[in-house]
Each structure stands twice: as structure tokens, then as C-alpha cells.
Amino acid sequence: MDTAMLSHIWKEVTTARMHIPDGFLSLPVALAFWVISAGLLAIAARRTQQQLGERQIPLMGVMAAFIFAAQMINFPVAGGTSGHLLGGVLAAIMLGPWAGMLVMACVIIVQGLLFQDGGLLVMGANIFNMGLLTAALGSLYHGLAGRQSKGVRLVVAGVLAWLSVIAGALFTALQLGFSGTSPFAIVVPAMLGVHVLIGIGEGLITMAALAFVMQVRPDLVSVEAVRAGGGRSWVVAGLLIALVVAVLSPIASADPDGLERVAIDMGFEEIAAAPPYEVLPDYVVPLLGETPVSTIAAGVLGVLVVAAVAIIVGRLLRQRAAIT
């Protein structure tokens, strides 16, 4: 192994590039994240098409190329490591949540398809970790900082960018753990430890880039522009946070929850009526058996069902309001 290869490895380890290659995730994990990513991208494509005209098509293509190119801009940190941009939070701040998600997904698709940076079968996981999750965190900016002073907005953007790298690393680690590629006890703390530091570079560049645009073209990031682009950000972020919780659920205790415990202790468990129908008994999807993946799938299905019900109820209420 020559020094060039060693330095390449060192660079890979010390930058925020966490593109998973094919073969490192098991089939159920890879497919589950393909389903999640494809679903979110379909929503994003529909939303963007409704909100934006055909003028936005070249804009989004060039913006995706911009994120790809901006990932090359680096700055020395210390000890041969360098900070550079992943760009999800910046994209969501500049373009809004849905367009930001589409742009980030395109960046990761091109990196995998044209440059073998990340695999094809695991592309769904890579799109989720580095594209959708980071853009969703970035879209919180509009709700949190839309009307605040310039300094507060910059700090919020920086913190979100830092968090986005950590969230991406956490999901990468969890996917590797569930795939049996690396033990949880090692890969989760290792990935988090490294990326808590690497994320600082992401935060600093995002803040500086945003400050530059605020100074040169304040119209692009004004309160009005934010209001036009945001709006749905809370919905996106809420849905994603719920999905995160669903995926983390197998780590939660398998013991009965508080009410069940009390019921067992007091001996009234038998009195409890069985629910009239059980779609997913004990949070296990029948086809997948009793594994962590099955619990995740059940959780994700649950989140999607609840979201669908909420959207339908919202639509009905809005229609009624429109009638009266």
C-alpha cells in the first residue's frame, strides 16, 4: 500500500463523505430505505411541480451541479484534515424543503451512477442519509429563524448544518449495524464521534455562505422569500422525525410500557378487551418475521398511515371551512 492510497483512505475517513458502497448493507435494509426514499422523492416531485413553473427546471439542474461542485471547496482544519460542505441544509434554505430534497437526491444519484461514489442497490440509503435527512433538517430553518435577526438566522443555519452531518452519520451507522456489517456498540459511537467534529466544518461553511448571500443578494434570502419557500417545512420535518423514531424503535426496550406493566402487576391485563382489529399485531409485519427490520417496517407503515389520515382530515376540514 503506497502513501497515495494511505492519504486517500485518511481523506475518506476524515471528511463527511459517508457514501455507502454496495455490499455493505443487507438486502432488507437497502430495500427498506429505497422504499422510504422513493416515496419521499415522489412527494417532493409532485409538490415541486405544483409550486414551481417550468422556469425552475434549469434552475434545479444547475443548483444540483452547484452542490456537486461546492463539495470540492475545502479548507484546512488541522492535522491534515479538511472541512468541506455536504450542502443539504444550504440547499433547503436557498430553495425550500421539497426542491432542496430533489436537488440533493440528484447529487447523490449522479455520484453513484457516474462516479461510483456510493452503490446502486444502497443508493436509497445514501439518498436518505445525505440528501433527504439533511434537507429536511435544513427546512426547519424557515420555521425557526424566518423572522429573526441576521445573527440569529446565521446561528440557526450553522447549528442545523452541524446537526445534519451528525444525523446522517447516525443513520449510516444504524444501517450498518442492522446489516450486521459492524457491531452497534462500535460503529455508532465511532461514526458519531468523528462526525460531531466534521460537522463543525459543515456548520461554518454554511454560515459563511449564507452570510455572503445575505450581504450580496438580500432579496434571495429575505423574510418574504422565506415565507414563499417555506410553509410546509414543519410537515416535512415532523414526518422525518417520526420516521427517525420509527427506525430507532427496535433499540427501545422490549419490556412492556408503563401501563402494560401496571396492568400485569395489578392483574387486570385479562380484562382489557382485545382491539376490534389488529393490522400489525405486536408491531411485526407478517412477511418479515420477528426481526428488528420488521419492527422498523411496522413503525414506518404506522407513521405513513397516521400521516395519510392527518392529511385527509386536514383536507376535509379545509373544504368545510371553504364552504361555510
Partner: peptide, 26 residues
């Protein structure tokens, strides 16, 4: 470190604006 990060951030912002204007021309 902050100065170096700001230089990189300014470059990123610069690239963003140039890309935006390019997409308009396209």
C-alpha cells in the same frame, strides 16, 4: 480557523450566485 472557513464560505456563496444567474441565462 474561522477566517479560513469564511473564505471557503464566500467562495461557496459566490459559486451559488454565479450558478443562479447562469440558470436564468440558460
Amino acid at each position: 480557523l474561522f477566517w479560513r472557513a469564511r473564505v471557503a464560505g464566500n467562495m461557496t456563496g459566490q459559486l451559488f450566485l454565479r450558478s443562479l444567474e447562469r440558470s436564468d441565462r440558460i
